[in-house]
Design a protein around this nucleic acid. Structure first.
Length: 841
RNA sequence: GGGCGUUUAGCUCAGUUGGUUAGAGCAUCUGCCUUACAAGCAGAGGGUCUGCGGUUCGAGUCCGUAAACGCCCACCA
């Protein structure tokens, strides 16, 4: 028998391990149609946050729904090695231990990193278990494991052979802290306070000078030109002339280039080809000299004269001082401008000229754009609007810098010997070849996740059966990093979309709508929530609180009320189990009106829930289920059933409906439904792998359903009247007609209140449809009643006095919104009326 | 500069292909310890669906427009 109160800790204890050891999550156990989701692999850098809980719960609901429907459901677990993020954390740990990570041998460092991975992976496994995720651990993968490495090398080699991967010297985004190249997607632009430093660049052989405004004066050592717009009448005349670079005393040319915008700054712009993306292009156009002035670690190099060795920001400060002292500084103009920061280390990225590996994007992106035109083969986004985000990215994309100067990742399968380059699956046999020391961008391997986890490049049984996968679930912030890349890689290498549907959810925010972040300290650990309210409550809350694609404001109160809902289900189940213990076999013959009513409602519920589940509209599933369970099943049907407990049909209906409810809830709240289901008499299967409720047309009784609806509505009207008259015991009911009042009279406890003749007492007509009665008020006022009434009169009088005063206040009547005044008048009127009534009685 | 989203009860949010009286949770008010549940039951109050215009027999829903807030992309000497 169930405990009196729902105790999530007890219910959830040990369940996951038992599910897992009984193989309930394993794929390949039935002959159903394949349904497959690959988990977005969490980074092995830390613990899961609420966003993960949300993301994985949605997937678990989909998987459990399909599994219970008889699909061969496969949910592939796995984790991401998360290159920069993990390396940064491992390095930090080493530094805290007093070890300089870069002085270590690469192999030794990797050992430390793998230990880290092991520890954190274990953590994540524990959290997945707490959340109740029905992952098939037989298929678990890691982005750095053997099979996935093979997939990565295969893709690299093929793209190289196809001319879609190349190595070249380009301007890239450089992270001076992690000392690695970044892709454009890894650069986060932030508004920061800065300044326009106006610097005097004297013209050669003249007293004139150009006013150059720059936000980065420290790069001036690398200036190799000044550009003005050829159409800018102010400066046209200087094109071809030269200026002297202050302090450096180097002569640099003034060039005419469209890049110079007459409306920006002063209209003349210094050109630093090695430290600015646009300047690099200008440099190429005008064949300018390239001078690097900043080291990979963000300090100034030997070209920066006396500033060598100084950090770029310290150098800026000192340089500005020197410029001022020497009279070159015209003015400093404070501005707010947006500056690129590294996504992982948060330091300002440095545009940097370096030799890196790139993926040529346009041929790959064009394939996606082409494929999205075909309704049958495209990736279908839910909500559909997110398709535009992907398509736009495909249109404007540029070559993807994939090499990273890190140790943690897939080492690039390229070997060098003198001037030769070899790209292949294995090192060349011949001696003297040295492998590229760089690794690939983490997203390069993540991009292959939907097929590499299924065994590709080998055409395995799993790959044949489950690819393309059914749905991918992720947040909209991950579309550029991951969804887009999986899509073009999937199309290119498998000829198919990697997933049929892409379900996009929003971000978790705090109650005030702010992003949850470490710096704000407003993060919520899902494990704490589970401890307090249970995984079922958290899961149900997260999955049903918003429509797809929109952000979710985390509100603990709502988790609490979800807990209440589960407690309600628990107690209803408890009642049912207490009453059907002796049921020998289920029989849905000889049904009562109430039985027919709830069964009809159940069929409608199954229909709607299935419809919404199929569309993954979980918030709508909740609306339907919550109402059915709480209002129809608990508040109405169970109350009615209490009068028919010796009925086998009623017991059977209670059981039949409860089972359907539990199965519909199971994908959302696996723990509690499993616990209750196990205890239902005559049940001997596992709810996880049982079967989903199906509509049974023989259990739809429209006439009875309508009739009971009318009875319920009548009871509501009657109770209403009773409450209004504050009647408790002293009343009589006269039935005006001969219709069936049996259930009504039981539910309203009319026993002893029914009169067969009309009375002289105060009478009120109460009716709904065919149900018509007269309610006689026989209530005589007691001392207690009088006191109560007097108290009410007093508070009413006080309120009236206050309101009259307010309305007498001319300022209020004049200045306050007319509607408010009107409202106050209305209130006053009704209060006076009520007072009259009370005093008259 | 280009694009997208949001705006519905005091708060947080649902609202399907346009269709009776726009819903829920929490909060508020009234009355109940009725043996499944007081973390509950029976009721009540609370909305010009951001403003304006249009299409329609009918608009929270479709179209146009304005505003506020938020996001994405691009640019930012």
């Amino acid at each position: 028998m169930l405990e009196k109160k729902y105790n999530h800790l007890e219910v959830e204890q040990g369940k996951y391990e038992s599910w897992k050891s009984n193989g309930l999550f394993d794929s390949g156990k039935n002959n159903g149609k394949p349904f497959c989701i690959v988990i977005p692999p969490p980074n092995v850098t830390g613990k899961l946050h609420l966003g993960h809980a949300w993301d994985t719960t949605i997937q678990d609901i989909m998987i459990r729904y399909k599994r219970i429907q008889g699909f061969d459901a496969l949910w592939v677990p796995g984790m991401d090695h998360a290159g920069i993020a993990t390396q940064a954390k491992v390095d930090k740990k080493l530094r805290e231990e007093g070890i300089d990570p870069r002085s270590m041998d690469r192999a030794d460092w990797l050992k430390v990193a793998w230990d880290w991975k092991k520890e954190y992976a274990e953590n994540i496994h524990k959290q997945w278990a707490k959340l109740g995720l029905s992952l098939d651990y037989n298929k678990e993968r890691f982005t750095l494991d053997e099979g996935l490495s093979k997939a990565v090398r295969t893709v690299f080699v093929r793209l190289y052979e196809e001319g879609l991967i190349y190595r070249g010297e380009r301007m890239i985004n450089w992270d001076p802290l992690a000392k690695t190249a970044l892709s454009n997607e890894e650069v986060i632009y932030k508004d920061v306070e800065g300044a326009f430093y106006h610097i005097k660049y004297p013209l050669v052989g003249s007293d004139e000078y150009l006013d150059i405004a720059t936000t980065r004066p420290e790069t001036m050592f690398g200036d190799t030109a000044v550009a003005v717009n050829p159409s800018d009448e102010r400066y046209q005349k200087y094109i071809g002339k030269k200026v002297i670079l202050p302090l450096v005393n180097r002569e640099i040319p003034i060039v005419g280039d469209e890049h110079a915008d007459p409306d920006k700054g002063t209209g003349c712009v210094k050109i630093t080809p090695c430290h600015d993306m646009n300047d690099y292009e200008v440099g190429l156009r005008h064949n300018l000299e390239k001078i690097v002035v900043i080291n990979p670690d963000g300090t100034m190099n030997e070209n920066a004269l006396g500033y060598q060795g100084l950090d770029r920001f310290d150098a800026r400060e000192k340089l500005v001082q020197e410029l001022e002292e020497k009279g070159y500084l015209l003015k400093i103009e404070k501005i707010i401008h947006s500056v690129g920061h590294s996504e992982r280390t948060d330091v300002m990225v440095e545009p940097y000229l370096s030799k890196q590996w790139f993926v040529k994007m346009h041929p790959l992106a064009d394939k996606v754009l082409e494929n999205q035109k075909n309704k049958n083969t495209k990736v279908k986004f839910l909500p559909a609007r997110y398709e535009k985000i992907m398509n736009h990215w495909m249109e404007i994309t540029y070559d993807w810098c994939i090499s990273r100067q890190l140790w943690w990742g897939h080492q690039i399968p390229a070997w060098y010997k003198d001037d030769q380059v070899y790209v292949g699956m294995k090192a060349p046999e011949e001696e003297g070849w040295v492998q590229d020391g760089d690794v690939l961008d983490t997203w390069f391997s993540s991009a292959l996740w939907p097929f590499s986890t299924l065994g590709w490049p080998d055409i395995t049984e799993d790959f044949k059966k489950f690819y393309p996968t059914s749905v991918l679930v992720t947040g909209y912030d991950i579309i550029p990093f991951w969804v887009n890349r999986m899509t073009f890689q999937g199309l290119h290498f498998t000829g198919q979309r990697p997933f049929e549907y892409c379900y996009i959810h929003g971000l978790i925010r705090d109650k005030e709508g702010r992003k949850m972040s470490k710096s704000l300290g407003n993060g919520v650990d899902p494990m704490d929530v589970i401890e307090e309210y249970g995984a079922d409550a958290l899961r149900y809350y997260l999955s049903t609180s918003t429509a797809p694609g929109t952000d979710l404001r985390y509100d603990e109160e709502k988790v609490k009320s979800t807990w209440n809902f589960i407690n309600k289900i628990w107690n209803a189940s408890r009642f049912v189990l207490m009453n059907i213990e002796d049921l020998e076999s289920e029989s849905l013959e000889d049904l009562t009106m109430a039985d027919k009513w709830i069964l009809t409602r159940l069929e409608m519920t199954i229909k709607n829930v299935t419809k919404y589940m199929d569309k993954y509209e979980f918030q709508n599933v909740n609306a339907v289920l919550y109402k059915f369970i709480w209002e129809d099943y608990c508040d109405q049907y169970i109350e009615m059933a209490k009068f028919a407990m010796d009925n086998v049909s009623t017991k059977s209906t209670l059981r039949y409906t409860l089972i359907a409810i539990l199965k519909m809830l199971h994908p959302f709240m696996p723990f509690v439904t499993d616990e209750i289901y196990k205890q239902i008499p005559l049940v001997c299967d596992d709810i996880t792998t049982s079967d989903y409720p199906m509509i049974d047309k023989s259990l739809i009784f429209s006439d009875e359903e309508r009739q009971v609806n009318d009875q319920i509505e009548f009871m509501r009207v009657f109770r209403n009247k009773k409450a209004e008259l504050q009647l408790t015991k002293e009343y009589k009911v006269y039935l005006k007609n001969n219709v069936d009042y049996d259930m009504i009279s039981k539910m309203l406890k009319w026993d002893g209140h029914i009169t067969l003749e009309k009375l002289e007492a105060k009478a009120y007509e109460v009716s709904y449809r065919e149900y018509e009665v007269i309610l006689y008020d026989e209530h005589e006022e007691t001392e207690e009643d009088k006191e109560k009434r007097q108290k009410e009169i007093n508070t009413l009088k006080q309120s009236i006095e206050k309101r009259e005063k307010l309305l007498a206040n001319e300022a209020f009547v004049k200045k306050a919104p007319a509607s408010l005044v009107e409202q106050e008048k209305e209130k006053l009127k009704s209060e006076k009326k009520k007072l009259e009534q009370l005093e008259g009685e």
